[in-house]
């Protein structure tokens, strides 16, 4: 395609912009964490003498002025070393990466659920707005929006794990390797474990997708191009599946992209309720023990993740909407 060099330039420009974002973010987080408390006293045995405290401070590099600490951190980061966890004594990056598959699979499962349930239900509600079922869908979606995640999670455990005993309440199931990917999505028991936490996470996203799809459908259905397609004698399934869906997918893809980032980064509550061994739980634990390297590394990874997701969404745009010309004038 003739637009490929332009696309490459665009991606490079975007990555450079994101490097600046990561840099700025690291400064803010680094300084901010310095203000909120001293990790040494959380780490050390209360009975330790002054000499031991001094030793620990030196070992962690906390005796240096903050700008030197930051400089050391950046120099190390450029070589791929995001520091060593104060608590675990291992590489912060490795800690996060080890937890990542569990979080990714729950985020993917929740996103898939929001697509599989959200788009058809939203389409239906948009095509037949006055029908009783459509009104029920919309009413339920308001619940999906407004009920707090933690409460729904607890209720789900009560009903499906405690009362009915259908699904396990906590933890991640056994994993299996398929096409080089190791995930609990490939075992039956793994699926049973992930069903509840994923649905819990997905509930809000499903509601969001339903409302977006419905709004898009309501708007598009009155457009001339839909009327023209009908005047051409096109079957209603093709009108909905091709003419309509391709037009309303644009906002849905944007929102799903951003929401996917949110799911990966901030599914803390659900991971805590269902004791899901993901990154969210690691973040909470690290904040509680003021494990600075892990927090900084985590946030940097999340920023990178959002940058990549945004890039993918932008590229998907140009696939979905031919009017979007990536790289002509940067958006």
């Amino acid at each position: 395609m003739h637009s490929e060099p332009r696309l490459t330039a665009y991606i490079i420009r975007r990555l450079m912009q994101s490097a600046a974002v990561v840099l700025a973010m690291s400064v803010i987080v680094f300084l901010g964490l310095n203000v909120i408390g001293d990790p040494v006293y959380l780490l050390i045995d209360p009975q330790a003498d002054q000499a031991e405290i001094e030793r620990t401070i030196r070992r962690l590099g906390l005796d240096q002025p903050i700008y030197i600490q930051y400089f050391n951190f950046i120099t190390n980061a450029l070589t791929g070393n995001l520091g060593t966890s104060f608590v675990h004594g291992t590489s912060a990056l490795k800690l996060i990466v080890d937890r990542m598959p569990a979080t990714l699979e729950i985020a993917i499962a929740a996103t898939l659920m929001s697509i599989v349930f959200g788009i058809p239900l939203g389409l239906y509600a948009g095509l037949k707005p006055d029908n009783f079922f459509s009104k029920s869908i919309m009413a339920t979606s308001i619940l999906g929006f407004s009920l707090p995640t933690f409460w729904v999670g607890i209720m789900m455990i009560m009903v499906f794990a405690v009362m009915l005993g259908w699904l396990p309440s906590t933890g991640r199931g056994p994993t299996a390797t398929f096409l080089g990917i190791t995930s609990s999505l490939f075992t039956i028991d793994g699926l049973r474990h992930i069903a509840m936490p994923a649905l819990n996470l997905a509930l809000l996203k499903i509601s969001l997708v339903i409302r977006l799809t419905r709004a898009g459908t309501r708007e598009a259905i009155h457009q001339d191009y839909i009327k023209f397609a009908r005047a051409k004698g096109i079957s209603s399934s093709r009108i909905v599946g091709v003419h309509l869906l391709k037009n309303i997918m644009i906002p849905v893809v944007t929102v799903l992209g951003l929401e996917f980032g949110n799911l990966v980064a901030f599914s803390v509550v659900t991971e805590t309720i269902f004791a899901w061994p993901g990154m969210g739980k690691l973040l909470i634990d690290s904040i509680q023990s003021l494990d600075r390297p892990v927090i900084v590394a985590y946030l940097i990874i999340i920023v990178l993740l959002f940058v990549i997701i945004n890039l993918v969404v932008d590229i998907l745009y140009s696939v979905l909407d031919p009017r979007v010309r990536i790289g002509e004038k940067s958006a």
């Binding site: 001339d224 191009y225 023209f228 051409k232 003419h243 391709k246 037009n247 979905l320 909407d321 031919p322």
Partner: peptide, 17 residues
């Protein structure tokens, strides 16, 4: 029986060739 619409800017589906 075919039909032609008023506004050519709106008649064709923008995302289909």
């Amino acid at each position: 029986i075919a039909m032609i619409f008023q506004d050519p800017m709106m008649t064709l589906n923008p995302v289909l060739r």
